[in-house]
Simulated scan of single mutants.
Amino acid sequence: MQAFIHGMVLAMGLILPLGIQNLFVFTQGVTQPTFVRTLPVVVTASICDTILILLAVQGVSLFIASFAWIKVFLLGIGIIFLSYMGWLTWNQTLANGCEHEEKSVTLKQQIFFAVTVSLFNPHAVLDTIGVIGTSSINYVGSEKNLFTTACILISWCWFLFLAVIGWKIGKQEGFAKLFVSINKISAVFMWLSAIYMAYSNYL
């Protein structure tokens, strides 16, 4: 049980803080007309995190990270995507009824964006490798399996929780105006993240 608790605490420390991935899942909960429409992004983000966790625990991600060009590629994709997502988020509004249906992100966009913010987010990848991957070497056999299961479980539960909270809040009267302000702040956050990534790695 120690390995399981360790995995839960560690995963919560990495997954719960505000980040691009969490913001995207939350905003989908807010903007989608029904809760069922939020599930594709929840499942996609959770699967991506599961893949990263499994790769980290198996040590595969450490091998990949040893190639400098892969890190440069991930950073480049991440910077471009954060800039694009910032632009989309800045211009997104919250409507009602049919107009809400039209303005919400489509299923294909949900899956594509969720994959990108999960797998092409260098900070998330490096956190998974550096923290979960290195912490897992303390365990073997069933203990390592419990540790891995706990990390994955927290990831799935957290994304589902974010979508539920977003969906509940989005239905509150008068939230549409507040949502515009939240989106502006989120967009600035994304652009600053892209600038910081470029400055710290390329300049």
Rank of each mutant, 00 (worst) to 15 (best):
A3V: 05
F35C: 02
L62A: 13
W191G: 00
P17V: 12
A114V: 02
T93K: 10
I169S: 01
W191N: 02
G59Y: 10
A124G: 15
G78A: 01
L10A: 05
L54P: 05
V36L: 11
L178P: 04
S155V: 13
L39I: 14
W69Q: 10
L39E: 03
F26H: 03
V140R: 08
T106E: 09
R37D: 11
V164W: 02
L126P: 09
L14W: 07
G133C: 13
I47R: 08
Q32L: 13
L126A: 13
H123A: 02
S193H: 00
I20K: 02
Q32S: 06
S83I: 02
I15K: 06
Q109G: 04
L52F: 08
K177P: 01
G130L: 08
K171T: 13
T34C: 03
L39M: 12
F120H: 06
G141Q: 10
C48K: 14
I80H: 00
G166T: 13
V140F: 15
W90M: 04
T93L: 08
H123K: 13
N183G: 06
K108S: 07
L162E: 01
N201Y: 05
P40V: 04
M1K: 12
I111Y: 01
N91Q: 12
K171P: 05
F112W: 11
E99S: 08
G78E: 01
G170V: 04
F4L: 12
V131C: 14
M12I: 09
L107Q: 10
V180Y: 07
I152A: 14
S104L: 02
G97I: 10
N201F: 02
Y202F: 15
C48L: 13
T50L: 14
T89L: 00
A198H: 05
E99G: 01
K184S: 05
S155N: 14
L18S: 11
V115M: 04
G141E: 07
A45W: 02
I64E: 01
G133N: 14
S200M: 14
I185Y: 07
W191R: 00
F63T: 14
Q110F: 03
N138G: 14
T134H: 11
Q58E: 14
F81C: 07
Y199W: 06
F113Y: 13
I132A: 10
S186I: 05
Q92C: 00
L88W: 00
Y139M: 08
A124I: 11
C157D: 10
Q110R: 07
L18I: 08
K144N: 05
N183T: 05
L203T: 12
G29S: 10
M85K: 00
L23E: 12
S135A: 15
I182P: 08
I185D: 07
L23F: 12
L54H: 06
